[in-house]
Amino acid sequence: MTRALALHLGVIAALFAAQYLLPSYHQTNIARIMVLAVFAMGYNIAFGYTGLLSLGHALFFAAGLYATGLGIELAGLSAAPALLLGLIAGGAIAAATGVLALRTSGVSFMIVTLMFAQTGYLTILYFGTYTRGDEGIVINRAARAIGSLDLSADTPRYFAALTLFAIALLINLMLTRSRLGRSMIAMRENEQRSRMLGYNPFRVKLIALVISGLYAGAAGAAYGVLFGYVGASFATIQYSILPLLYVLLGGAGTTLGPFLGALIMFYLIDISSGYTTAHLFVVGAALLVLVLFAPKGILGTLRERAVKWLP
């Protein structure tokens, strides 16, 4: 077992133990953070590893969220197939977006993804008859269960979130070690060179974006079932910025960065809201400070300075 694998299993074990140590309030928080971290991990696969700075990942998260939510509420699916539907929806929407958006790069890519996400948000509002627009849908409690496991209760919810998080994290780790992962990083580092090594940049980036969309879709789907609410606010630009913020804070291109970023940011807002209502300021200032003074984030800087083996 390598150091890296040991570290990741250690983090998962610590989160497992945390369930028994934390009071209920923080338990719910950590469950939420783990789901959001999966979303951010997906974002990191596109941005951190492949170099695709998307401003539209809320679309993939919302695709998962709504596919699951509407699957349960309108089609009467039970939670398990609805979750699967959410996962697939995230990947499929990412594929469709990618086929078009990946014809552009850099700033155009950012704007195109932003516009697609905006279209998605407006579409949710437009079909308000089914989605109930801004007001959103509360998923009925009875449907939020897999078999006899009631996912709306604290403990099963925590373990469901942890299971998803652990799977996502370990796949992420495997990916960074794989040939695919290496070719994704090659796109980020030097697309021209990669092309002249025989890689089709469009193909590699599309695969990365679809994996990223599957992560976001899974996170969205889980969020709907675990927390029981499906609303248009999750499709707004704020939810595209959020994973970017987490990833920048924790460290782009590091496996544990998204979780660390989500954890710190979540509690930063949570604690600061005890003193001030200025959440927007906290988010804005964090973005500025990161981009100005620590563009590599916490783990990225740590890897550069001290712990070179950090994946």
Binding site: I185, A186, E189, N190, Q192, R193, M196
Partner: peptide, 10 residues
Amino acid sequence: FQITSIYANL
């Protein structure tokens, strides 16, 4: 490449 084009950060 004429101008060295390697993955400098890898």
